[in-house]
Structure formats: structure tokens, C-alpha cells
Write a protein that binds this DNA or RNA. Structure first.
Lengths: 187, 187
DNA sequence: GAAATCTTTTTACAAATGATAAAAAATCAT
DNA sequence: ATGATTTTTTATCATTTGTAAAAAGATTTC
């Protein structure tokens, strides 16, 4: 469990006590490739840390799939909107590879936040990071076309390119797979 | 100052004490139409509540303008990314009408959050709302074309339509003004 | 290792959007 | 009010993107 403690202490330095309490609350789960970590219409009651693997957060509209974001090892994530509102989620989370996560319930998070202020700071920062990422995403979708968004993506996530299908990447970029194929061919 | 207290107490019910402290920290400013509430490259060190008026948060890329969001009376806002990171903002905030705001500095916000837990809850909720809005925006941009986004906008912000120029609306929707004009004509 | 399945690319065609220019309409300033 | 400015619409053409279907390539399964 060194990995997750290392990760969180880098964001908010916790006391030995807080570290122990945090560890206590964790549960480890492994999801085979292609299975759901969160299904649509479920309430997301957990925060996750990925020990290994890769996931996507996505939704469907009229058969078409759209991808909100990918999460890979050493990232913490949740389906924020459902986690915050405690309402059924429109989004689902699927393992793109066999994925092992540490999982902590919102209930435990809230208790830990009350008990240890640095843990409260940790989650507050995590939400901030998510917000910054979303603003960046919105800006990119406004100002850039598919080609530029693709180039940005490979510049910033080069390793992921080998692990994500081009169909998924297209659904993330907001273009069709055919268009993505054309973009790649144009190089 | 009834308006702002009413607004915040609806989100998080504050003690008489907290209400008073909050009021103390506020400063009122009026910005004429067309002027900047925040310029690009400035650090956004304030949270704002709009008593009256209308603003846009926007940025430019190669002469082209893009609009992140509009804020109207009885809304609280800040330029979140700069407010959180304390770095110069890429985004600017401009008054689209003469706009009167109550303004509270981040420094004061942080002090009030420490002193009054319901104020901490207030700001935490405000960030949550912003996050939910952003997720909705990203989903919409992925799954809907310009026409559907336009129809969504007028359904959800019908009153704003009279107050926003079609150019600004197009820059918000991520389409050209000519395309927006065509969408409107097609009805 | 061959068949079946899934992924990616290619092609042809149709539809949507963008760029540009110009006209029409609305708004603003004196 | 009237002329000037800004905003919105219209028209044309070029480009981009989408859809559908087929072909090629890669992977999985038995």
C-alpha cells in the first residue's frame, strides 16, 4: 500500500495517525478487463485509487458512446457528479485493462475529513484538480478542432496511446473514428 | 445587502454571527458596460456576487473569442482556475451590462471558512455546483451538435437571450455567428 | 493454426459548418 | 432625426465532418 500513501502525502502531507486511519478505510478490489467499476444509474459512493490498470468514464446517447475521461494507475478518481449529489450516475466507469483499485467510501472520507484536517485538504485539492482539468477540456473543445485536440492528446498522454483503442480515443475527442483515422493518415 | 445574505443562507444556513462577519468582508463595486472585472494575466483574488447586471468569462485565441460562461444577477462567481492556483488567469471577465457586485477577497474567504464551518460548507458547495455545471457542459459539447446546444440554451436561459448578443452566444456555443444565424433561420 | 471476432483504415457520397463578402436591420451618438 | 456604427442575416463557395459499407489488419478463441 506504499503507492497510495505516497500519492496522497505528496498532495497533502498527513500525520502518521492520519495515514494509519486512511489505510484502515481502504478496500482492495480487482476488476477484469471490460467490467464495470460503476454502472449507469448507480450512485457512486466511493473514491478510488488505481494501483494498476486503466479505466474510462463514459456514457451513451442513442447508441453512441462518449468518453468523459480516462484514469490510469496512480490516479485517484470518482464519478464526481454522482459522488457529490448522491444521485444515480449518468456516467459509467469501465476497466479497459484488468484494474486493481483501492476504494474508500464517501462515508469514511467524510469521517476522516472531520478527524484530520490534512485529509480534508487532500480531498479539497483533488476536487480542485478535477475542476482545473475540466476547464482545460472545455477551453480545448471550444478553441481547437479535432486535429489539434488529437495532437494535444498524444503530446500529453503519449504512453496512453498504446493502451487505448482509437475508437475510444475518438469518442473522447468528440469526433468519429473515421475522422480520427483521416487525421492520422494526413500526417 | 439582503440579496446576498438571502442567497448564501439558502445554500448554507449561517449563524447571525457568521452573517455579520460575512457582510463585514464585502465591498461593493460597479463596473460600466464593456469594462473588465478581471483582465487576462491578472490573478483572480476575489469571489463575486452579482447584485445586478451580467458578465461573461472569456478568452481569445488568434483574434477569436471564446466564452466559458455567463454570470447574471444573484449568482456568485470567480475565475475558478486562477482563484484556486493563484496564477495569472487566461480568462477575463467583462461586464456585458452595467454590473454591480459584492466582492470578497480570497484572504477573507479563507479566514471566514476557518472561523465558521457553515461558511466553509458554503464555498465547498459553490465549487461543487461549478463542477457539476462543467461536467454538463462537457457532456453537451460531446453529444450534441450546434442546433441542439442552441435549443438547450434557450430552453434553460430564455431570459438571457434578450440580453446577450448573438455573437457572444455563438462564441459560447462553439459555433460561428453565421452558423447560429442559420440555425435560427431554419426554425 | 484456422475461424471468428474485433479494430482500424479506406472509399464514396451526403450533410453540416466555416470563411468571406455583402446586404439588411437594429442600435447608438450627436 | 440622421448619419455612423454595430449587429444580424443572406448568399456563395470551399472545407470539414459524418454515414455507411467494404476492405484490410489484428486479436481472440477453440
Amino acid at each position: 500500500m506504499k503507492d497510495i500513501l505516497e500519492f496522497i502525502n505528496q498532495i497533502s502531507s498527513l500525520s502518521i495517525d492520519a495515514n494509519e486511519d486512511f489505510l484502515e478505510a481502504l478496500e482492495i478490489k480487482t476488476y477484469p478487463k471490460g467490467t464495470f467499476i460503476l454502472k449507469a444509474d448507480q450512485v457512486c459512493r466511493n473514491y478510488y485509487f488505481i494501483k494498476s490498470g486503466l479505466t474510462k468514464s463514459h456514457f451513451y446517447k442513442e447508441e453512441k458512446e462518449f468518453i468523459m475521461t480516462f484514469f490510469k494507475e496512480k490516479m485517484m478518481f470518482t464519478e464526481i457528479s454522482s459522488y457529490l449529489t448522491e444521485k444515480p450516475s449518468r456516467y459509467m466507469i469501465t476497466a479497459l485493462e484488468e484494474t486493481t483499485v483501492c476504494c474508500i467510501s464517501k462515508k469514511d472520507v467524510m469521517e476522516l475529513c472531520k478527524k484530520h484536517h490534512p485529509i480534508e485538504a487532500l480531498f479539497s485539492k483533488m476536487f480542485s484538480f478535477a475542476t482545473l482539468n475540466m476547464m482545460k477540456r472545455i477551453s480545448e473543445m471550444l478553441e481547437e478542432n479535432g486535429t489539434d485536440r488529437y495532437n494535444n492528446f498524444i503530446r500529453e498522454n503519449n504512453e496512453l496511446l498504446q493502451r487505448i483503442s482509437l475508437g475510444d480515443l475518438a469518442n473522447y475527442l468528440g469526433i468519429t473514428q473515421v475522422t480520427l483515422s483521416r487525421i492520422r493518415a494526413a500526417k
